[in-house]
Computed example of a mutant assay.
Amino acid sequence: MKNVYVIRHCKAVGQAPDAGLTESGVRQAEELAAIFMDKEIDCILSSPYERAVRTIKPLADQLGIEVELDHRLAERVLSSENHPEWLDRLRYTYDDLDLCYEGGESSNTAMSRAISVVREALIRENKNIIVVSHGNLISLLLKYFDNRIGFEEWEALSNPDVFHLSFIENAPVIRRICAE
């Protein structure tokens, strides 16, 4: 059996790629490290965004494991334009997975890149893998395995949030194990 722990980053000071964690987020990262110390983690993959890396760095340092950065785990770009109705636009992308706004990527495109990371991780020798990413991308990753996951589940995510995917065959058992 392989275990993939999907972690949404801790509370951050903003949305930019270089946005760090808030003081609360730093404490949350330390708490996450404590939660995972007994899980025999042998691989950590992370979005290159600062808030994702800072979320998992305390655990990586304690375990002596290198955080492998993967650009495919970066947050999905909904659109290159700022729209006041961005939330409605996001909702529509859960109904039409091929809907793509100017300068953005469709749900299917984002889902495919996230799934490619998990598929590659599953063929490695590692048994207990952590994947750190961002809310929208994580919800699409989970949707791939459970089509019932959608906009409402994205809205219900917290910072941080943790899902345990247990792989015995191709389809995992998904369990939410930690939410702020």
Rank of each mutant, 00 (worst) to 15 (best):
Y5E: 11
Y5N: 06
Y5F: 15
Y5V: 11
V6D: 05
V6C: 03
V6N: 04
I7S: 00
I7F: 02
I7P: 00
I7C: 05
R8G: 06
R8N: 08
R8E: 12
R8I: 10
H9D: 04
H9L: 04
C10E: 02
C10G: 14
K11W: 09
K11G: 12
K11E: 15
A12T: 03
A12M: 10
A12P: 00
A12K: 07
A12L: 04
A12Y: 02
V13F: 14
V13S: 15
G14D: 03
G14Y: 15
Q15M: 07
Q15V: 03
Q15T: 05
Q15I: 04
Q15A: 06
A16W: 06
A16T: 07
A16Q: 10
P17H: 05
P17D: 01
P17I: 01
P17Q: 04
D18S: 15
A19L: 09
A19N: 06
G20D: 02
G20K: 07
G20V: 03
L21G: 00
L21S: 02
L21T: 01
T22N: 07
T22S: 10
T22L: 02
E23K: 14
E23T: 10
E23N: 15
E23H: 13
G25Y: 03
G25A: 04
V26L: 02
V26G: 06
V26D: 01
V26T: 01
V26S: 04
V26Y: 03
V26F: 08
R27P: 04
R27T: 05
Q28T: 09
Q28H: 08
Q28Y: 08
Q28R: 01
Q28S: 01
A29D: 02
A29W: 03
A29T: 00
A29L: 01
A29H: 05
E30I: 08
E30R: 11
E30Y: 11
E30N: 13
E30W: 07
E30L: 15
E31M: 03
E31F: 00
E31P: 00
L32P: 00
L32A: 01
A33N: 11
A33V: 06
A33G: 05
A33T: 09
A33W: 08
A34N: 11
A34Y: 11
A34S: 13
A34H: 13
A34E: 01
A34G: 03
A34C: 07
I35K: 10
I35L: 15
I35C: 06
F36N: 06
F36E: 03
F36K: 04
F36P: 01
M37D: 08
M37P: 06
M37G: 04
D38K: 15
D38R: 14
D38E: 14
D38A: 14
D38S: 13
K39E: 10
K39W: 14
E40I: 05
E40H: 15
E40N: 15
I41E: 09
I41K: 05
D42R: 11
D42W: 14
D42K: 13
D42V: 07
C43L: 14
C43E: 03
C43Y: 08
C43R: 14
I44E: 06
I44A: 11
I44M: 13
I44V: 12
